[in-house]
Simulated scan of single mutants.
Amino acid sequence: MTDGDWLLPRPAWMATLLTITALYAALLSVATKAWRERTGVALRLDVLPKRATLPLMIGLPLLLIGGPYAFGATGRPAWLIATSLLGAAVSVGFHLAFVRLHRRTA
């Protein structure tokens, strides 16, 4: 996997990383709209404690971008697998905590 013929050039990696991050933001906006239409309540991140939302808003994009960079530097695909799984687990956990909090306040 670390063969030079297999790896993407740096500009292609950057385009891929930016596309993935933009897609993540777009999915959040779609989820926000769907939540508002289904419940009639705006999806508000300010109701969650800052100690949870701030690390998520900063850490998740860094995690999703850091994995491919670590893979490029080390050539070990375990970085991609680990950061993908961790990112998915963090996203699902945050979603479940948010839904539980909104159910309590509704």
Rank of each mutant, 00 (worst) to 15 (best):
residue 17 L to N: 01
residue 91 S to C: 10
residue 68 P to V: 15
residue 69 Y to C: 09
residue 35 W to A: 09
residue 19 T to M: 06
residue 48 L to T: 01
residue 47 V to Y: 05
residue 36 R to L: 13
residue 50 K to Y: 11
residue 45 L to R: 07
residue 52 A to D: 07
residue 69 Y to N: 04
residue 30 V to W: 06
residue 60 L to Y: 05
residue 92 V to A: 14
residue 11 P to E: 11
residue 90 V to M: 01
residue 42 A to Q: 09
residue 46 D to T: 06
residue 105 T to R: 13
residue 82 A to G: 07
residue 69 Y to Q: 04
residue 73 A to D: 14
residue 93 G to A: 11
residue 24 Y to M: 09
residue 28 L to C: 10
residue 62 L to S: 13
residue 44 R to Q: 11
residue 26 A to K: 03
residue 38 R to S: 14
residue 58 I to G: 03
residue 94 F to G: 08
residue 99 V to H: 05
residue 77 P to H: 02
residue 48 L to V: 00
residue 21 T to S: 07
residue 68 P to N: 10
residue 58 I to H: 01
residue 82 A to R: 02
residue 25 A to Q: 02
residue 26 A to I: 10
residue 83 T to A: 10
residue 12 A to N: 11
residue 64 L to A: 00
residue 55 P to A: 10
residue 55 P to G: 03
residue 32 T to A: 15
residue 70 A to W: 07
residue 21 T to P: 00
residue 86 L to M: 10
residue 101 L to I: 07
residue 79 W to V: 03
residue 11 P to K: 10
residue 13 W to I: 09
residue 52 A to N: 06
residue 6 W to Y: 12
residue 36 R to T: 09
residue 43 L to M: 08
residue 43 L to I: 00
residue 96 L to M: 03
residue 66 G to C: 12
residue 49 P to K: 04
residue 14 M to K: 06
residue 82 A to N: 00
residue 46 D to M: 11
residue 82 A to S: 02
residue 22 A to D: 02
residue 9 P to M: 07
residue 85 L to G: 10
residue 4 G to A: 15
residue 106 A to T: 11
residue 93 G to E: 03
residue 2 T to G: 14
residue 68 P to F: 12
residue 26 A to R: 04
residue 92 V to H: 03
residue 28 L to E: 05
residue 61 P to I: 11
residue 42 A to L: 12
residue 97 A to R: 03
residue 4 G to H: 04
residue 76 R to E: 08
residue 72 G to P: 02
residue 57 M to V: 03
residue 88 A to C: 09
residue 37 E to N: 08
residue 78 A to D: 02
residue 4 G to M: 10
residue 94 F to C: 00
residue 72 G to W: 08
residue 38 R to G: 15
residue 75 G to I: 06
residue 10 R to C: 13
residue 6 W to L: 15
residue 14 M to A: 11
residue 72 G to T: 07
residue 24 Y to K: 02
residue 67 G to C: 04
residue 38 R to P: 05
residue 51 R to T: 13
residue 57 M to W: 08
residue 84 S to P: 03
residue 75 G to R: 10
residue 100 R to F: 12
residue 101 L to N: 01
residue 70 A to I: 04
residue 30 V to I: 10
residue 10 R to E: 15
residue 20 I to C: 09
residue 102 H to R: 15
residue 30 V to L: 04
residue 99 V to T: 08
residue 81 I to V: 11
residue 5 D to H: 08
residue 94 F to A: 10
residue 34 A to G: 06
residue 80 L to P: 00
residue 42 A to I: 03
residue 103 R to A: 15
residue 104 R to I: 14
